[in-house]
Simulated scan of single mutants.
Amino acid sequence: MQHVSLAGLSRFFEKGHFMTQSNDTFDGTFPYAPRFTDAPGFHMYYVDEGPTDGQVVLCLHGEPTWGYLYRDLIATLKGSYRVIAPDHMGFGKSETPQDRTYWLRDHIDNLERFVLALDLRAITLVLHDFGGAVGMGLAARHPDRIQRIISTNGPTPFGQATLIDRLTANAEISPWFSWILKAEPEGRLEAVLGELGFNILSTLKINGFENHALINDTWLRAYGSRFATPADCAGAIGWAKGFAIGAHRFEVPDAAALRAIQSRPALAIWGMADRTLHAEHFLPLFSGVFPQAEIHRLAGVGHYCHDDAPEAISGHIARFLQQT
C-alpha cells in the first residue's frame, strides 16, 4: 500500500479543500471537460469525450463511485467513440438535492431524461454496480436506443422475481450487504454512511478493491471529496437504505422490448474477487438474459474492476466494440 502522509491527509480533510469542484482534474488523472445539464431536474454532471458523430458508449457508475471510475476506459475509447459518463444524482460532480428520493426508479427516471435530452441513440451501455440496474431500466424503456450491453461487475436484472432470490443469497455472503441489513434497523446506517468522506477507503475495501498501489492523496480525494457532510451523502445513503427497506423497484420490459434487448450483442467482464456482487449469483443472471454472450472472468480482480484491472477491461471492451 502506498504511504499517504499525515500532512496529506490533513490537507485532504481541510474545509475548503474537501468539496469536489466541477473543474477539478485530480492532479491530471481526470482531464475531461466538465459538462452539465438540468434535464433530470437537478444539476447533472457528465463527461462527453470523442467525436460527436461517433458511436455512443454510455458508462454508468454505481456506489459510491462516479465517472472517475471510468477514467482509463474513456482515455482508451475517446479516439474512436463518443464516450459519455454521467454522474448519478448525489454522486461525483452532480448535485445532491435534499428534496428528492434516491431509489432505483429515481435514477432510471433521471437517466431517461438525460438520454432523451441529448437524443442519444445506438448506445453501448457499460454497466458497473447499481449502474447495471439503472442501465437495464433504460434498456427496458427504450430498447430501440440500445445497440450493445457490457456488464462489468454490474447486475443485469429485469423485475423483482428474477432477482430477489439472488439478492438474498448474495447478502448472506457479502460483508457490505450483510452490514446494510443489520445497520439500517439498528439506526446505524445513516450515521456511518453520512461520514463517507472520512471512511471512503474502508468502504471501497470492504466491497472488493484489490489494487492498493493506487492509494494516494489524489485517489482518496477523487473518491472521498464528494462526501464532505452528511447532506452530501444522500445518494450513497439512499441506495443502501433502499436495499434494506425494499424501496428499489426493478424495471420489467414488455415482451417485445425483452426480445429486442436479448438480440443485442452483449459482453460480461467480472472481477472474481468481488465480495459485494458474487459471480456465482450474478453471472447466471446475465446469462439468463444473454445466453450466447461472451464472459471474461478476471482472477484476483475485485468489485471496482475498472480500478483493479483497467488495461484488461479496456482491451476486452475495445475488441468487443470492433468485433460487433
Rank of each mutant, 00 (worst) to 15 (best):
G197S: 08
E184V: 00
H278S: 09
F243K: 12
A231D: 11
A240P: 09
S225C: 09
W179V: 03
L220H: 03
R264M: 12
L267W: 13
D217W: 05
L196T: 12
D254R: 08
T203L: 02
T229C: 12
Y223Q: 07
E251T: 14
A228F: 04
P253V: 14
G224I: 05
I180L: 11
D254L: 08
L214C: 08
G238C: 13
A234L: 15
G187N: 14
I245E: 08
F227L: 05
E186G: 12
A273T: 00
R226C: 12
L277W: 08
F250Q: 05
I237Y: 11
E210D: 04
L189P: 09
G235F: 13
G246Y: 09
D274K: 10
T229Y: 11
I180Q: 11
R275T: 15
R188P: 01
E184R: 01
A234P: 02
G238V: 05
D217C: 12
A257M: 01
P185H: 02
A247F: 11
V192D: 06
F243S: 11
E190L: 05
L196D: 05
A279F: 01
V192A: 15
A183E: 10
T276D: 04
A222F: 07
F250P: 00
D217S: 15
N207Y: 02
D232V: 10
R275D: 06
A247W: 08
G235S: 13
L201Y: 01
E190M: 03
Y223A: 02
G271W: 01
E186D: 14
S202R: 04
L204N: 02
A191N: 12
R259K: 05
G235K: 14
K205M: 10
D254T: 04
N199Q: 07
R226W: 08
H248A: 02
I200F: 15
A183G: 13
K241S: 06
P265L: 09
L220M: 14
A228C: 10
N211C: 13
L214D: 10
T218L: 02
L267Y: 06
N216W: 03
T218W: 01
E184S: 00
L193Q: 12
S178Y: 09
I261D: 09
W219S: 03
H212L: 14
A268C: 15
T203Y: 00
T218Y: 05
I261K: 13
N211S: 11
L201W: 06
E186I: 09
Y223E: 03
G208N: 06
A231V: 10
K205R: 15
D232H: 07
W239D: 02
A183T: 13
L181Y: 14
